[in-house]
Design a protein around this nucleic acid. Structure first.
Length: 425
RNA sequence: GGAGAGAUGUCCGAGAGGUCGAAGGAGCUGGACUCGAAAUCCAGUGUAGUGCCUAGCAUUACCGAGGGUUCGAAUCCCUCUCUCUCCGCCA
């Protein structure tokens, strides 16, 4: 969340921010509730001060009369205080909930616009492959090669579930390890994280576990959810902690399963592996000093590029428009890989996403460091996809398909796979 | 899942109804000593709010979390979470 004092000091800036992000947040109501809360808080504290004062008078010896008078006074204060505290708790609950809906500020350099069409393509790498034949999509290729099975996935688990089979399994494991090796080279500490996290952590990272639009599976009665990304478990890792300044930056990379409800996401563009309820992902995560977050954001993006360049997959980089930014993100870059089977003649499809969330998540999760001036400050937190396995598999299958429906393994993956081709049986 | 022990500041650790924002130590900061460093000595050092006559003062909250008892709770009671030990179960 943002610093709630900003509601007073940066009101118009927040208002503009909400507008540019095309979000629906009633800032006026929030500011009013904040005022109600402050005045109620002041009243409550004045009563507490009186209570303490009365109690303090009773520390020493007193004659019984004076003592019982003070006790009566204390009782009266206690009753009044009880009422005030209840009122305060209610308005505070409402206000806190509202305040969490205020998005992070966006970078002055981020393109302003309403939706993904306004995203700015800032770089193109590689030429989309030209096939001498009609390119197939990964669903057809995968099923023909018997490496993907959507039908039995649907039968056993429901729509948007799948089995990976045969050399497809090896390909996915090879990708995991390939990406891991590159990330480790850049000094990240590897993790395999839990696939379940508490709701408060989800909320702190900026996910809403509740509501019809939530993309999160909650585990009923447990206060926990299936994670949609290891960003949650890596970002929660230091929650409530004070990090030694000399330990920053902390660079972590985590492999987890990712679960997403994807309610309503169907159709041509989310077909097959592209949009599924469960996939594996290797995520990068950095905790750093505020002044360093911009450059680490670029570093994460560069690692993502290195990974896809190594695979020989054409891509473009997109600078995400304000209206398409997640609430915690200050700035976000996506890599969109060329997917020859997407749409009629191939299209770019998102394979990675990296966000600089500045101090927005750190404030909710209370993750700080002690600065040289002795003050505790919030760290900056960044995340980025190293490898979303399902989407990367789409890109590889479709880009490396041959006329007979076989798939060539990218050179960089051959040592990890132990074979050079996936062919029909 | 059952039984027991525990959770205190940046860290370790005392505390057992008013004298506790909390002993002591470590760390950190400043100073003395030193050519310099170490050691030693002296002093300072929690966080987050709020108000004001804003290098300060006052006040509120915070001793795992949430409730309760009480005029008054780190301290008593209840619930929960986590950690440790033992038992059960188990990949």
């Amino acid at each position: 969340m943002i610093d709630i004092r900003d509601i007073k000091t940066r009101y118009s800036e927040i208002e503009k921010n909400i507008r540019d992000r095309y979000m629906n947040v009633d800032l006026k109501k929030i500011a009013e509730d904040m005022d109600k809360r402050s005045s109620l808080l002041a009243e409550t504290e004045a009563l507490r001060a009186r209570r303490n004062e009365t109690a303090a008078k009773m520390k020493g010896k007193l004659d019984p009369d004076a003592r019982s008078r003070l006790i009566e006074e204390g009782k009266a204060i206690k009753e009044e205080l009880g009422k005030k505290e209840a009122e305060l708790a209610e308005i505070d609950r409402i206000f806190q909930e509202e305040a969490r809906t205020i998005p992070n500020y966006y970078s002055p350099e981020a393109p302003v616009g309403k939706e993904d069409k306004d995203n700015l393509a800032i770089k193109f790498y590689g030429e989309p492959a030209k096939f001498t034949f009609k390119a197939k999509d990964h669903v057809q290729l995968g099923e023909e090669l018997d490496i993907l099975d959507f039908e039995n996935g649907a039968k056993v688990s429901g729509q948007k579930f799948y089995y990976i089979k045969n050399k497809g399994v090896i390909l996915q494991m090879a990708l995991e390890r390939y990406a891991m090796d590159i990330v480790l080279k850049h000094g990240f500490t590897p993790f395999i994280t839990p696939d379940i996290a508490k709701e408060e952590i989800l909320q702190g990272i900026g996910f809403n576990p509740r509501g019809a639009e939530s993309n999160i599976y909650t585990l009923e009665g447990t206060g926990t959810c299936l994670v949609g990304t290891a960003e949650i478990t890596l970002g929660g890792y230091y929650s409530g902690e004070i990090i030694d300044k000399k330990d920053l930056p902390i660079k972590m990379t985590g492999l987890s399963h990712c679960f997403r409800r994807e309610a309503g996401g169907a159709g041509q563009y989310s077909k097959g592996l592209y949009r599924v309820h469960q996939f594996s992902k290797l995520e990068m995560f950095i905790y750093c000093l505020p002044e360093e977050s911009d450059s680490f954001h670029k570093e994460i993006l560069a690692i993502e590029e290195e990974i896809f360049q190594g695979l020989g997959i054409p891509y473009r980089i997109v600078d995400t428009a304000t209206g398409d930014l997640g609430a915690p993100a200050y700035r976000k870059y996506d890599i969109e890989a060329w997917m020859p089977g997407r749409g009629d003649e191939g299209e770019y499809g998102e394979v990675t996403s990296t966000s600089n969330c500045t101090d927005y998540q750190a404030r909710s999760l209370n993750i700080r460091y002690r600065d040289d001036d002795g003050k505790l400050k919030f760290v900056h937190m960044l995340n980025g996809t190293a490898m979303a396995l399902s989407r990367a598999v789409v890109a590889i299958i479709e880009n490396y398909q041959e006329e007979d429906g076989a798939i060539r393994i990218p050179q960089a993956l051959v040592p990890y796979c132990g074979f050079e081709k996936i062919e029909r049986k």
